[in-house]
Design a protein around this nucleic acid. Structure first.
Length: 233
DNA sequence: AAGTAAAACAACCGCAAGGGG
DNA sequence: TCCCCTTGCGGTTGTTTTACT
């Protein structure tokens, strides 16, 4: 006795959704809201698995989705967020209104990866490919015919590179606590909530010289307002 | 115009987390 | 506390579209 399958595979459709199925799903969710995905297909008269319905709704049918090409600013934002979060597509999607994790993931794999590679940047580490290669080889090479003194020298060099990288990360404000980072006590919430962030401040690059918003509050890390991390804003 | 390769997009699958009984 | 169920996530695969020869 294992757990029951998520759906009766013999009686469910697979593959591309038809217009009719889309209409059924939209109509049902508009009437009843998003609820139990497991029971939804039957209730909506769909021969689909609940997971499939959920995916279809979230990725393509939701009314708040933004279709169309990614802008250059969205590109850069995705790159910065990926540097912070890694392959946490849902977290990244949470900072890009109207975009889904699946959409971003596909876009990353088909466009941005290549774009970074063309820039000589390793997409997985966000470091210069040469730099990453030499750092890695320095680590792996330690078994070769290298003197103890040389090993120490290389280790120190590696350490320095890592410290430098960490400093760069710190500039991004990686404090991922639920509460926002340090805030000036004198600021009022009203004032903060109406401030529009520039691209750099929205990423937590609070001291970036490219900052153009010149606002007083530079602590609304990734759009966190009023002490709440709104991942699906 | 036809065939092929590459790119882009859509959907599925398996797993893990969290909640409730 | 444990077990089961549901949901959500990330990786992967399959299909369609576009570009090129």
């Amino acid at each position: 006795m294992g757990r029951s399958p998520c759906c009766e595979k013999a009686h469910t459709n697979k593959g591309a959704w038809t217009r009719e199925e889309d209409e059924h799903l939209i109509a049902y969710i508009q009437a009843h809201g998003e609820g139990c995905w497991r029971t939804l297909p039957k209730a909506a008269g769909l021969l689909r698995c609940g997971k499939s319905c959920r995916l279809r709704w979230i990725n393509y049918l939701r009314p708040d989705l933004k279709r169309g090409n990614f802008t250059a600013e969205e590109d850069e934002l995705i790159i910065e967020l990926h540097r912070i979060f890694g392959n946490k597509w849902s977290l990244i999607a949470g900072r890009l209104p109207g975009r889904t994790d699946n959409e971003i993931k596909n876009y990353w794999n088909t466009h941005i990866r290549r774009k970074l590679l063309n820039r000589g940047i390793d997409p997985s580490t966000h470091r210069l490919a040469k730099e990453a290669t030499s750092a890695d080889s320095m680590r792996s090479n330690s078994l070769g015919a290298v003197s103890e003194q040389e090993k120490i020298t290389r280790a120190v060099k590696c350490e320095k590179q890592e410290i430098q990288f960490e400093r760069q990360c710190q500039e991004l404000n990686l404090d991922l606590k639920i509460c926002p980072p340090y805030q000036q006590q004198s600021e009022s919430l009203e004032k903060r909530s109406t401030t529009v962030l520039c691209f750099y401040c929205s990423l937590g690059l609070t001291n970036n010289k490219e900052c153009c918003c010149k606002r007083n509050d530079r602590n609304d890390f990734l759009g966190m307002k009023h002490d709440i991390l709104d991942c699906r804003s």
